[in-house]
Design a protein around this nucleic acid. Structure first.
Lengths: 232, 232
DNA sequence: GGCCCTCCCTACCATCTGGTAGACAAACGG
DNA sequence: CCGTTTGTCTACCAGATGGTAGGGAGGGCC
């Protein structure tokens, strides 16, 4: 594999694990299997390396964005007239899988939020804010239609759920220690409860489905055990 | 003030802001207004200093614990017939106020979770797990009585809410950047939505308490002043 | 006074840090 | 075939780092 890419990989791993200040370029060079000046040939300084790492992370995110936005915006499954079947799940899945795919992404973001809040802020405004906006719009529409609790602050809600996913992935194994049981099932419990919490905190209807606006329903096509507000 | 205490204060601040590796004992000594060897007289090594900082944080937490446990266990306000009036709010308030009182506590914990997961894990098991257990028991009882969604994973729920508070406080100002408006009202929006989300995700029927009388004022009686049906 | 103990200091040190200079070799392009 | 570019290396450097040695001022105590 390309040396430059290998450096980025190892740097990502080590920055996520020990932080920027806790990682020496020497240790990165060792991990790559190359001498320090060789590394500095590809990235003229440690700061440059960090920026490249972050840039790559965010560009990966940007590649995934359309898919996620599509999931949020696609109003209806092919033949169904239930207005919002599975959309919520698709967005949440897209988000969680992106970070679970490589938890270092989450850890890196949380570290940046702590280490360089100002710089991350501008990146968030650029990369995340518009997406939050789209999701929030969808939620606001759903709220107007009566599917979502009417006192929901849609932007703040989207932010909290995002934070639960990102922050959760970042500290999962540390945090999960307070749960009993094996590590594998602990993470699954946390994931499942996150989904339940996010849904129950959003959609109206306690347990039973009961959307206030009159709607003709198609057959209950809910493919998840805990369902969306498919109508009635 | 006691020099030793001042050192702990400044170390807490700087560790929270820049991390352990990003903070030199020289910089701490400067902040205190003392020479480096003087600092090392009180704390024989940098690692000792970190442990003392963390120990103090957790012992503060331990002092507050009884108050929080009491809030969780006290079943009913004097004259109320609603069976669980305000208990939830009291616990959540106790938790949030502890960390909002000094956000460095939250930042420090999140940093430790990332930097030294193994060590923090043992601390969490010791200091946090029992408390989560008590709260979870209360929630399980409430669930059995039908006040709480029956598919709630009470431990995982408690963990998620705790994480929302701690992690949220840690990265609030960074994260809040994606919300429009002034910083002051952003944090209030996030706080209010956190409370709403936590409650709606827990209690059946959406709102905390809902005895027969269906009054619209009951909803307005909740004390968050800033916009709730904000962005409609 | 004489003594010890607390506390803070100056001076120093070995090691590690990010980063540079420049030699060397292979590959490339005319 | 020769110059240039690309990439890796050894050798080195100045500064910062965590930590030590040891001196001295002050206060309490007998």
């Amino acid at each position: 594999m390309d040396v430059r890419t290998t450096i980025l990989d190892e740097a990502t791993r080590l920055f996520a694990a020990h932080g920027f200040d806790g990682t020496s370029i020497q240790s990165i060079a060792d991990a790559v299997g190359v001498r320090k000046p060789s590394l500095l040939y590809h990235f003229p300084s440690k700061v440059d390396l960090r920026e490249s790492v972050l840039e790559r992370l965010l560009s990966h995110w940007n590649e995934r964005l359309p898919e996620l936005l599509l999931a949020a915006a696609t109003p209806t499954a092919p033949g169904a007239q239930t207005p919002r079947d599975g959309r919520f799940d698709r967005v949440l899945d897209a988000l969680t899988s992106f970070f679970l795919e490589d938890p270092n992404r989450a850890r890196l973001l949380v570290r940046e939020a702590l280490d360089r809040p100002d710089e991350l802020r501008t990146l968030l405004v650029k990369y995340v804010k518009p997406w939050i906006g789209v999701v929030a719009d969808q939620l606001a529409t759903a709220r107007a239609q009566g599917f979502v609790h009417e006192d929901t602050d849609v932007e703040a809600y989207a932010l909290h759920v995002t934070h639960m996913v990102v922050g959760g992935v970042a500290v999962f194994d540390t945090l999960g220690a307070v749960l009993p049981g094996r590590a594998s099932e602990r993470s699954e419990r946390l994931r499942a409860e996150l989904v339940r919490l996010a849904k129950a905190g959003l959609f109206r209807r306690g347990q039973t489905e009961r959307p206030p606006p009159p709607s003709k329903d198609a057959a209950a096509r809910t493919r998840h055990t805990t369902a969306e507000p498919s109508s009635k």
